[in-house]
Amino acid sequence: MRLLIVNPNTSKGVTDRIREAANYATRPGDHFTTVCPSFGPELIVTPQDAELASRAVVETVKAYDAPCDGIVLASFGNTGAEGVRALRPDIPVIGIATAAFAIVGALGGPFGIVTFGRSLVPGLTDKAKEAGVGGQLIGVEALATDCFGDPGTVQSRHALELSQLCIEMQQRGATSIVMGGGPLAGLAAKIGASCPVPLIDGTQCAINILRSTTILPRT
């Protein structure tokens, strides 16, 4: 399976984390290319960030000319999805929020979201509602900060705190937990042993959903 995985922000560190998460889901014969745009915000927080990043994502996909069986958009805003689908109607395109919440819906039961900043809570809550799983959401736990620093290192700098937030969310009654935000890609595999309920990584969910569809090699 040949996938293009686009980090919609320009952080090389976040792109590395997304690539790492994708590598957990590889199988023999897979070829994943993980890229980020050459322009746009380093982190998508505001509507203005999202608008600029959407344009950047479309331009990034336009510039990619290798064979591709599907595209993953690795932000919880599903940034650029509409434009990319219009550009590439021949292949499936999925955002990591859509993928993560699809798994939540399939699992059923109450779930929570853990993220890395308080300002991200409203947007993540809205995405859960848009995906039709708002009624299952029991809450969003976030680090008590909006000073993100380098978004590519946020998970390594705050791994213990994020792990504790997952435990607290499980204690509130969550039967699964979504790791909210591209900068947390791959963290579930690192801290999952410390939490007794599934931690959901949107990048890996998106890859596995694309794998479950009938994708024929294109030349």
Rank of each mutant, 00 (worst) to 15 (best):
R2F: 05
R2I: 03
L4E: 02
N7P: 06
N9W: 01
N9M: 03
K12F: 06
V14K: 08
E20Q: 14
E20H: 15
A21R: 09
A21K: 04
Y24Q: 11
A25Y: 07
T26I: 14
T26E: 13
R27E: 15
D30N: 09
F32Q: 01
T33L: 09
T34E: 02
V35R: 07
P37N: 12
G40V: 03
P41L: 07
E42R: 13
E42Y: 10
T46A: 10
D49K: 00
D49F: 02
A53C: 04
V58D: 04
T60K: 03
T60Y: 02
D69N: 15
D69I: 02
G70M: 09
S75R: 01
G80I: 09
E82T: 14
R85Q: 14
D90N: 12
I91W: 03
I94E: 00
I94P: 06
G95P: 02
I96E: 01
A97N: 00
T98E: 03
T98R: 00
A100S: 15
A102W: 00
L107V: 02
L107G: 00
G108H: 12
G108M: 12
G109L: 11
G109D: 10
P110E: 10
P110T: 08
T115G: 10
S119E: 13
P122K: 08
L124A: 01
T125G: 13
A128S: 04
G132C: 11
G132P: 10
G135S: 14
G135T: 11
G135Y: 01
G135E: 15
G135R: 07
Q136W: 11
Q136A: 15
T145N: 09
F148A: 09
G149P: 08
S156Y: 10
R157F: 04
R157I: 02
A159Y: 03
Q164D: 15
R172Q: 14
A174W: 03
T175A: 12
G181I: 00
P183G: 04
A189W: 07
A193C: 04
L199K: 04
I209K: 06
I209G: 09
I209N: 12
L210I: 04
T213L: 14
T213H: 10
T214R: 14
I215F: 00
I215E: 07
L216I: 12
L216Q: 12
P217D: 11
T219V: 11
T219S: 14
